[in-house]
Simulated scan of single mutants.
Amino acid sequence: MARTTPPRPVDVEMLFPEVAAYRKDTVRLHPRVGSPGPRDSSLGGPLLWPHSLRWPHCDDDHGQVSPGAGVMPLVPVLQLFAADVPELPFPAGTDVLQVLWCPFDHGYIPQPKLYWQDSSTCEGELAARPLPDGAEEDYLPDPCVLHPERVVDYPSWDLPDEIAEVLKERFDRVEKETGWSYWQHLSVADGVKVGGYPTWTQEPVWPDCAGCGERMDHLLTVNSAEFDGASWRTWLPVEDTPDTGTIWDLPYENRRLIQSPPGLMFGDMGGIYLFTCQQCPDRPCTHTFDCS
């Protein structure tokens, strides 16, 4: 079933034309629990991994694991095919992006690694991957199928201060008259997504490329949830809206399968933001994290 974000309840660019210059396209991935295969785009599903490529490991020290446990295999997080998400900046000769991570704390979050692959050189998953002993349950995603949807992002934290100051009175007036907050309901799309703006919960920390010194591009966000207690009114998909009552009237497990299908949690409802430099030939990547 497709997932459809409701149209914004007001015309953002008519009310606040100053933000139009900062609009960006983003792809909400809408993971939902399912049984993806290695040739499907997925979150937490099996990967189309080349037989000739050794499965990646983390050889950092993991204090919570018994001494001598050795290197830890990474776990699959995201697999995105160009056919499903062509908006990704695939390097020439590749058509699959794979994100794996070490499911232990590395500065309060798992340690992600990115791989760009050519699906024609991949023959299927090597084997079922045992989960590392002692891994953080919150960092082990349940297998989910994806439902990519294109929507528009407007900046929240990334709105320039001088523009925010100009718009402050108008933001307040519109919220008082309509009940819709620019910051919570009208700006940045929630959830796991590609492109657009990171869904910062604190002030932005945009990384610079260590190679060329330029600011890196936001590649994708992996969030703890599709929406929160305030943003659900505009970011809950139409197909998941209850016939009666609100999402918060559903039994907890039913709501969790809509709000946080992969079962991930980073700090206090935080997000992991991955960045890449498209100027450098080796496509360096990095990540940041924040939470409430």
Rank of each mutant, 00 (worst) to 15 (best):
R3Q: 15
T5G: 04
P6S: 14
P7S: 11
D11N: 15
V12A: 03
E13K: 13
P31N: 13
R32E: 13
R32V: 09
G34I: 07
S35M: 06
P38V: 05
P38S: 14
R39L: 08
R39P: 00
S42W: 05
G44R: 11
L47G: 06
W49D: 09
P50D: 13
C58Q: 03
C58M: 00
D59I: 01
D61C: 00
H62G: 01
P73C: 08
V75N: 03
D84P: 05
L88V: 05
G93W: 06
L100E: 08
D105E: 08
S119T: 05
T121H: 13
L126T: 12
P132L: 11
G134S: 01
E137W: 01
P143M: 10
P143C: 11
V145A: 10
R150N: 06
R150S: 12
S156W: 10
W157Y: 15
E162Q: 09
A164F: 09
E165K: 13
L167D: 01
E169Q: 15
E169M: 07
D172C: 00
W180L: 04
Y182H: 12
W183P: 00
S187D: 10
G191A: 11
V192P: 03
V194P: 02
G196I: 01
E203H: 08
W206G: 02
E214Y: 05
L219S: 05
L220S: 05
T221Q: 15
F227I: 07
A230P: 00
T234D: 10
W235I: 02
L236W: 05
P237G: 07
P237A: 11
P237V: 05
V238W: 04
G245N: 14
W248V: 00
E253L: 13
L257D: 12
L257F: 10
Q259E: 15
F266M: 03
D268H: 08
D268Y: 11
G270L: 04
T276R: 10
C280Y: 03
R283P: 01
R283F: 02
T286R: 05
D290V: 04
